[in-house]
Design a protein around this nucleic acid. Structure first.
Lengths: 224, 224
DNA sequence: ATACCACTTACATCTCTTGTAAGGTTTCCT
DNA sequence: AGGAAACCTTACAAGAGATGTAAGTGGTAT
């Protein structure tokens, strides 16, 4: 049951949308908090997001832009602003579809369904900016180039991308990559970090893994 | 330069569309033959297809449906029929977007651009019905299950899917997998076919590779 | 019936990945 | 400045997985 998060401040419309999606067998959730929408959203791990444009605080456009940088779920913008320039802005910011209110439920459902289908094939793909990683095969794609990482390096990269822009603690790396919290030998992590960095560097992604002394590692994806 | 194929029987509109896309730095090609559109289209290896609905011969809907079974490029339906039911039909058949004529060039370009961006991540994916194969990593996906093939088996599978529904000759397999036309030892092909079939069978795709005595092999994807 | 083609299994080789070891470099604190 | 702790790098060897060879079985067409 795909999870759809609805970001809409009009309570009445929000409930209506939730109802529409729930009737169609979706796990529809409405957000009623408009502070830190971004964090709330990410925590819910949505399969798709419906976004209004006129929101208290950050606009839907700003939200869309920053969500698209670090997420890989589709975003559908639903708004009362119906000019071409609104549509172009939305699509330009990475929105996957743009519909205007009022919108027939069937149209909304059909568009939603189609997006979920398209993105279904990419369920295993993590995305940060122009970089994407297939977590099944550890295929890294960046600027039309492809690099296939080995299993260990891939797992490290996966963790770094999942937690971006936060840092990943060493203990967490040990737990997730080697299955043990007790990192008897720190060296093994360093060796693999070294290998991964070398590969990334040859690939054109120099210096994107930064060490945090005593803590762990972070991804540094400013330039990309 | 992404290649866009335009399937539209109205000459005037077709030229206008081609011009719009060419100005936007696309490799835009119009189809003027409406017999065997499907074969013509596939030969051009498009990155995206713009499809009219009212065509001589097969309708755009029929075309869309059969293209979607064997291809992996996005399809945008552009039509004068503007009812909700038309849109629902199109989306239901797998169309990636639905726009009505007359359509502002900027809107068309923005929608096209977005589709190309979304599908860009899947450039390396072959698709036949419910089966897909990533030709970089040889990740095979079928019914939410994932199987990662070894390089040799993956290359064989790739050829079979690329040429579907035609057969692949043994000489072609030797050329593409082992880099030599002269198949000194036929056994190596048989061994790898055997291994591939075993893996596919365990994966729930039993008997989909059929031998053609003296010729080669075909994919048999009726049931899937 | 027989010759040809296709299929299968076992085994050895090879490649790629991983962890270990050892030595070097950077950073931080006194 | 000096030393310790944390981090980085390179080389090497063991291990796992993939590939090709060999040899024998089974099926099909004439």
């Amino acid at each position: 049951m795909p999870r759809i998060i609805i970001v809409e401040d009009d309570i009445y419309l929000r409930e209506e949308l939730i109802h529409t999606f729930q009737k169609a067998k979706y796990d529809a959730i409405g957000l009623s908090e408009f502070e830190n929408v971004e964090d709330h959203l990410m925590k819910q791990k949505p399969d798709l997001v419906i976004l209004d444009v006129n929101l208290p605080g950050k606009t839907g456009y700003e939200l869309c832009k920053s969500l698209k940088v670090k997420s890989s779920f589709p975003i559908l913008i639903l708004t009362a602003r119906d000019t071409l320039s609104d549509e172009l802005t939305a699509l330009g910011l990475g929105a996957d579809d743009f519909l205007t209110k009022p919108c027939h439920p069937d149209r909304l459902l059909a568009r939603t369904e189609r997006l979920l289908q398209t993105y279904g094939k990419m369920r295993s793909i993590l995305q940060i900016g122009a970089v994407s990683l297939d977590t099944d095969t550890y295929k890294l794609v960046f600027l039309d180039k492809v690099l296939i990482l080995s299993e260990t390096e891939g797992k490290i990269m996966k963790l770094l991308m999942e937690q971006f822009p936060s840092a990943v603690e060493k203990s967490e790396l040990f737990r997730n990559v080697w299955g043990t919290e007790e990192f008897v030998d720190e060296n093994i992590l360093q060796v693999n970090m070294s290998r991964l960095r070398k590969n990334l560097s040859d690939f054109g992604m120099d210096g994107i893994i930064r060490n945090i002394r005593g803590k762990g590692y972070v991804l540094e994806v400013d330039g990309l």
